[in-house]
């Protein structure tokens, strides 16, 4: 992995805010997709995840206080591979997905986020950034623990979980 150095509190807050905002927005989109496809159980789960990420945004904004958060173009963030680490890979979404799949997707995203904050903390020269980033990494790890527990309730489904007896519909 390339070095990741963020040594300015404004830049750090911008990254932290964007990371949570992208995740919240993505979960909301996925919840909507599941609603459209009549998968209410997973829709509710994604709504819940979106809500949790929304709270994180508020938390970060509180921490920022009066510190101005600069605008960064989406492609200028220092994300590994160009996408926010907490973004789930939406190609993995499926209309018949189960809570197990959704939580697994989310778990991977949280792990990437924890790792992202930890690496900033490890590399930064700025004390304030180190302190905040360490705190964020810890928080992401709490989520990971919590997701693991949640997952225990939803063991991996049978291999035919995505079997659909009907063919796709003709639309246009």
């Amino acid at each position: 992995m390339s070095t990741l150095d963020i040594n300015n509190i404004g830049e750090f807050l911008a990254h932290a805010h964007a990371l949570e905002a992208e995740a919240a927005s993505q979960y909301a989109d996925l919840a909507e997709q599941m609603e459209v496809h009549n998968n209410t159980e997973v829709a509710e789960l994604f709504h819940k995840l979106a809500e949790i990420e929304g709270k994180h945004i508020t938390k970060i904004d509180d921490k920022a206080g009066d510190t101005p958060i600069p605008h960064i173009a989406p492609w200028e963030y220092k994300w590994e591979g160009g996408q926010s680490p907490e973004a789930v890979v939406d190609m993995e979404a499926h209309y018949m997905m189960t809570p197990h799949h959704a939580l697994t997707m989310s778990l991977k995203a949280e792990e990437r986020a924890a790792d992202f904050f930890q690496r900033i903390a490890d590399n930064t020269t700025d004390e304030q950034v180190r302190s905040l980033s360490t705190e964020m990494a810890l928080e992401e790890r709490e989520h990971i623990e919590w997701l693991h527990k949640w997952l225990e309730k939803y063991p991996k489904p049978e291999h035919d979980w995505d079997e659909d007896m009907d063919p796709p519909m003709l639309q246009e």
């Binding site: 459209v36 979404a93 499926h94 639309q171």
Partner: peptide
């Protein structure tokens, strides 16, 4: 308006 696209 919610898209009609397949999830994924």
């Amino acid at each position: 308006i919610k898209p009609v696209w397949c999830p994924g």
